[in-house]
Design a binder for these strands. Structure first.
Lengths: 143, 143
DNA sequence: CTAAGCCTTCCCCTACGGTGGAAGGTCAAG
DNA sequence: CTTGACCTTCCACCGTAGGGGAAGGCTTAG
């Protein structure tokens, strides 16, 4: 199977497949006499798995770890459970940040309904008070 | 005021200030005879405003738009209200995505408690069903 | 005179997941 | 023989918000 066919069957582009190969997510396939990549049919499943794992919120590095364990002949379940915990922590942190930003934006929106432009003497009277409420990135612990 | 002093007063680095200048967020200041940037004192407020707007969830491009309106002598309130609506829409979309990812990760975590590694015959029995549930990026509308 | 502590410009690097394009090789059909 | 569709490699770039460090200039105190 040439790269174009694999790409179509797996729902990605050929560029993406070469990228995955460079990242070590997809093994280097055989080559035809002409130098074309010649994939075994089961690679389709591998690429689909990569897409599924991405859709579940894993970064490609993590997908790579899972695949590497699998390629070593082990069941990656334990490592996957660890990765899930990691990702859940990250995702929840990001959710908290975004909720803070959202409430800040909502506060601005509600101020916008009451503040007359004439009261706006600094750069923007709507925005200025923001820093006092949502210090998302604390300036203290700089590594 | 030289760049180091402005940096310290505004709570950013000198690198950041030069970056803001390149992005058009801070006007090019006068220069001393020696070629050093020499800022007017009120620039401190401008840089602080940039930080506040960032903390409220605006991207630097958007802060630039607000400042440009202000520099034109207008009150940017109307545009700010528009920007707030835009950002709210984006932030809420991102929140929905992240919530979907989170519930997907939770589903995997709960499957991990029941699935024995032996039942895991494909790449990872925990992950595979994901695509059916959380198709975050629809493959159809590709521009 | 010289060393320290500022400042200058310049270019590259980070993470993330690819995308775009140039220059050229391969393969099958007409 | 040529055209067109496919493939190859390599290099560069997208966005975001800067950071790292080199090589050199300015200023001031000792």
């Amino acid at each position: 199977m040439l790269i174009g066919e694999l790409a179509e069957r797996a729902g990605v582009t050929a560029k993406t497949l070469r990228f995955y190969e460079r990242q070590g997510l997809v093994p280097e396939p055989e080559r035809t006499d002409g130098g074309y990549r010649d994939y075994a049919p089961e690679i389709v499943e591998r690429v689909r798995f990569i897409k599924d794992a991405q859709a579940s919120g894993f970064a490609l590095v993590q997908v790579g770890e899972i695949l590497a364990i699998r390629d070593d002949g082990h069941a990656p379940c334990g490592h996957v459970a660890d990765l899930v915990d990691q990702r859940l922590t990250e995702v929840e942190a990001r959710l908290r940040e975004l909720r803070a930003v959202r409430s800040e934006l909502r506060a601005i929106a509600s101020r916008a309904e009451t503040l007359a432009p004439d009261d706006c003497d600094d750069y923007c009277g709507l925005i200025a008070p923001a820093a006092a409420i949502a210090p998302a990135a604390p300036p203290r612990p700089s590594p």
